[in-house]
């Protein structure tokens, strides 16, 4: 089948502003948008620029705005989108070129919640014990691949770019609810800030966007509750 692919293009060395370009591409229903982008780059326009690596939804390189929703290009199929497909870069992060956005600010927010295990006691000879039930408490939030689809789908982030954003809260959750971690209070302190959890308006865009199926809103609610109670 033939697909009409519209892509928001921007080359800082040539363009004053982003503009739409259209391409006709031969596609199979099971093809993913990434296949289409690769085929345009190979056969029609070698300057088309996007990030990609794993091509199966695990590295987080290719989140973009596809038919109005944030999706990984390597995970969304043509048969889920139809014959007209539009692709644009993620909203709210500076565009470097075409579909490539500057991730530095996003990653700085991730780093701001201290996304690493902090244990006060010296490690034992063997593993620290953790029951399967305790392990399950934070299982969902270990799945994050830092693709930025959630944060850049969030109206609160668009309105207030200093908002730490759902991805950072998800990663804070992963440690706050880990029984081996002793720095939950410090993270809660950070997230109690005006740019922390309170900016969440439970709009659920993040949940729709997350390619890993993480229940982000629930994670944010659990963190918010912990901020209020200051107990984890």
């Amino acid at each position: 089948m033939q697909v009409d692919l519209r892509i928001l293009r921007f080359d800082p060395e040539r363009d004053a502003a982003p503009h739409w370009e259209s391409y006709r591409v031969d596609a199979e229903p099971m093809d993913r948008v990434l296949n289409l982008l690769i085929s345009v780059k190979a056969d029609q326009d070698g300057t088309l620029t996007f990030r990609r690596s794993c091509a199966h939804g695990i590295c987080g390189s290719d989140a973009m705005l596809i038919n109005g929703r944030n999706r990984l290009a390597c995970k969304i199929r043509v048969d889920q989108l139809g014959r007209k497909i539009t692709v644009a870069p993620l909203t709210g992060l500076p565009v470097m070129k075409d579909l490539v956005v500057d991730m530095d600010g996003f990653l700085a927010k991730y780093r701001s919640v201290m996304p690493f295990l902090i244990a006060d006691t010296p490690p034992p000879e063997r593993e620290r014990r953790q029951s399967p039930a305790d392990r399950a408490r934070y299982d969902d939030t270990t799945k994050c691949i830092l693709c930025a689809a959630c944060t850049t789908a969030c109206p609160s982030f668009w309105a207030q770019p200093s908002y730490v954003g759902p991805a950072a809260i998800v990663n804070a959750h992963r440690f706050i609810f880990d029984t081996r971690d002793d720095a939950g209070d410090e993270r809660l302190e950070i997230l109690a800030d005006k740019d922390g959890v309170w900016r969440c308006r439970t709009i659920f865009n993040c949940v729709d966007a997350c390619p890993r199926g993480i229940n982000i809103t629930r994670a944010i609610l659990e963190v918010s509750r912990a901020v209020v109670e200051r107990t984890v």
Binding site: F116, L117, E127, R129, Q130, P132, R135, T142, R180
Partner: peptide, 17 residues
């Protein structure tokens, strides 16, 4: 074991190993 100490969330046996 060191990775576990660094925080790696391994699946656990019923007794937490």
């Amino acid at each position: 074991i060191e990775l576990e100490h660094m925080g790696l969330p391994f699946n656990r046996t019923p007794d937490g190993k």
